[in-house]
Amino acid sequence: MLGFSLVECMVACSSVLLMVLLLTEILEWTQLFAWMENDYRSPTFSFGYAAYQNGPHTWKDLYPESTGSNQSPINITTRLAVVVQPSEPLRWSNYNSGPLSMTIANDGHTVILRGFWTSTTWPQLQGGPLIDTYDFFNVMFHWGPSNEEGSEHTLDYVRFPMELQIIHVKRGIKSPTDAIALGTKDGIAITSFFLQINDTDNPYLDHIISNLWRITCPGSIVYIPPFPLEWIFAPFDRDYYTYSGSLSQPPCSEIVTWMVQQEPIAISSSQIEKFRKLCSVEGPLLLNCRPVQPLNDRDVYFYEESLSGNY
């Protein structure tokens, strides 16, 4: 009969535990490599922002959804917004978690920030106007040729020099491309921040802005030092505007719940100028914002403090 001492049993158990942890780590990194390989390989849509050839006025020719009645962006008239006290606040989970890997890319239309987290630390959005859980997908930036324009949404017809949009996809949907294909009405949730000019640089944007020169050419993608998403924007849970709309780029599918924060993020003139040095296939990418669209019969809601008070 084989006998094992207590020490031998402890060594055996420790070895098994170590093997399980090692396999778990290998699985996470395998998923990371798969993410790296497939990153930015979703189908691209042909469009531009030039007034004379492929700009927004031509999108209707290739993308009929862009003529729908629930298009984005819009002008938000603050006095006409329907004030709502939601039963629960907007909840941001894991936005303070650092990713395993992070990239920025120039897809020819905008700057895209993406990250990869473990399955247990992936950033998520819930609550507020959202019925389901939404997983973070990427961050996109919109700007204009001067500091007087650049944001897609306007607030009482005031345009900001830049807008930062955080795209989330509904749990169970892998990407915005899949949400478009499925036609899920609430397939995408986008949280949006305006950026306003400040006298000094915003150091929290440095990881992105200091690497923009590396993605000057369209189609460029580079890895940057990973950082928690909360570094570049402050999650909000009250005093924001929300409405049902569309993607603001082709195919302009009407599958988006928008949440727009009224308090802007600071950025300096010199920082925003670095975005204007990027190029599209047509040349310098000086403007990449769609004009505001008719509101039609839609309501815009202003979400005040939640009645639950769970902040």
Rank of each mutant, 00 (worst) to 15 (best):
A179W: 05
D186P: 08
I180D: 01
A179T: 10
D201Q: 10
P176D: 15
I190Y: 10
A181P: 00
D178L: 05
D178Y: 03
I173W: 04
H168V: 01
I173V: 15
A181M: 07
T200H: 08
Q165E: 11
A179R: 05
H168F: 15
I180A: 02
I190R: 13
T191K: 08
R171P: 00
A189D: 07
D201I: 11
G187M: 04
S175G: 07
G187P: 04
N198A: 15
G183C: 01
Q196C: 11
I167S: 03
F193H: 15
G183H: 01
P176H: 15
D178H: 09
I167L: 12
I190T: 13
F194G: 13
I167N: 03
I188L: 11
I167G: 00
K174H: 11
D201S: 12
K170A: 01
A179Y: 06
T184H: 02
I167H: 09
F193D: 12
F194R: 10
V169E: 00
I166F: 00
Q196A: 14
I180W: 02
V169C: 03
K185Q: 10
I197P: 06
K174Q: 12
F193L: 14
P176T: 15
S175C: 09
A179F: 08
A181I: 04
H168T: 07
A189L: 08
S192R: 14
P176Q: 15
G172E: 06
S192G: 09
Q196G: 06
K170C: 01
T200G: 00
Q165L: 11
A181D: 08
